[in-house]
């Protein structure tokens, strides 16, 4: 678009200011992880590496990260399967109740976490009579992760059309072979993007987790919440946060590259 020089400059500087505000709290967390002050005073009275050393020796933190990774992986795997199935059904077929099904997928994320949390807590304990454990957390997380996979896959299916699958069937491939060799490769990057979001969503979830985790299950957010207001532990939590943000660059970078390469390929074929 032919924007005037002035509007370009205004937009660019607004973008700069917004990003600065977005990163200000993260920068504060970063600096605090080196600060000698435990009560987060600004400017920091002095600098120390003590918290970094403590964080890496903290067995509780490492265990919590492992628990969170396990839960997020399991929840992501379930939501990948269910999300793909439901998006194939909604995109390829017209049937009675289709709108209701699409609302049903969105509902677990549209309704507040505390409602999902107490509803599942009540159902697990009083209706099903199940002990809360790591499994109940996985079931709860998978339920609200389905939507991220669903959104990515259905957007891809809309763009793909069915001609390649029809060609595959005409050439003698069975339904499973067609899915494995034709549909799945075209969905791969959408599945990756949806799966990554699902993983992130589950990894950071605190409210639903509070209500569905068994007594011995400490995910990373629960560990953080338990330690946030302990004076000796708050800087250690800052260290964990810094490590997580820096670590997240790697998956985001790869997701971007795959999405970028994918976008170019599809543009190449469309024109």
């Amino acid at each position: 678009m032919r924007l005037s020089r002035l509007s370009r400059t205004v937009l660019a500087s607004l973008t700069g200011v917004i990003l600065a505000v977005m990163y200000l709290p993260l920068a504060v967390v970063f600096v605090n992880s080196f600060s000698t002050s435990q009560s987060l005073t600004w400017p920091p009275p002095g600098f120390t590496l003590e918290w970094w050393g403590r964080a890496f020796r903290s067995a509780g933190a490492l265990e919590a990260i492992l628990t969170s990774v396990q839960i997020a992986l399991a929840a992501t795997a379930i939501s990948l399967v269910l999300g793909t199935l439901i998006s194939l059904a909604l995109q390829r077929y017209r049937f009675f109740g289709r709108d209701a099904v699409s609302l049903l997928v969105i509902l677990p994320i549209a309704l507040p976490g505390i409602i999902t949390g107490i509803a599942l807590n009540n159902a697990f304990r009083t209706i099903l009579g199940v002990q809360l454990s790591i499994l109940t957390v996985i079931v709860a997380h998978a339920t609200f992760c389905i939507v991220t996979v669903f959104n990515n896959v259905i957007a891809r299916l809309r763009r793909l059309g069915t001609s390649l699958e029809e060609a595959s069937a005409d050439l003698g491939a069975g339904a499973w072979t067609t899915f494995r060799l034709v549909t799945f490769p075209q969905l791969r990057s959408a599945l990756l993007a949806g799966g990554l979001l699902a993983f992130a969503l589950s990894f950071d979830e605190i409210i639903v987790t509070t209500f569905t985790a068994g007594a011995g299950v400490t995910t990373l957010p629960i560990f953080i919440l338990n330690n946030l207001f302990r004076p000796n532990q708050a800087p250690v939590v800052s260290v964990i946060a810094v490590v997580l943000v820096l670590g997240s660059i790697i998956p985001i970078y790869f997701a971007q590259r795959i999405a970028g390469a994918d976008g170019m390929r599809s543009r190449g074929t469309e024109r």
């Binding site: 977005m22 950071d204 670590g247 997240s248």
Partner: peptide, 10 residues
Amino acid sequence: MPLWASYLVK
């Protein structure tokens, strides 16, 4: 990227 910093920490 800020999405990956814990909600609680933010």
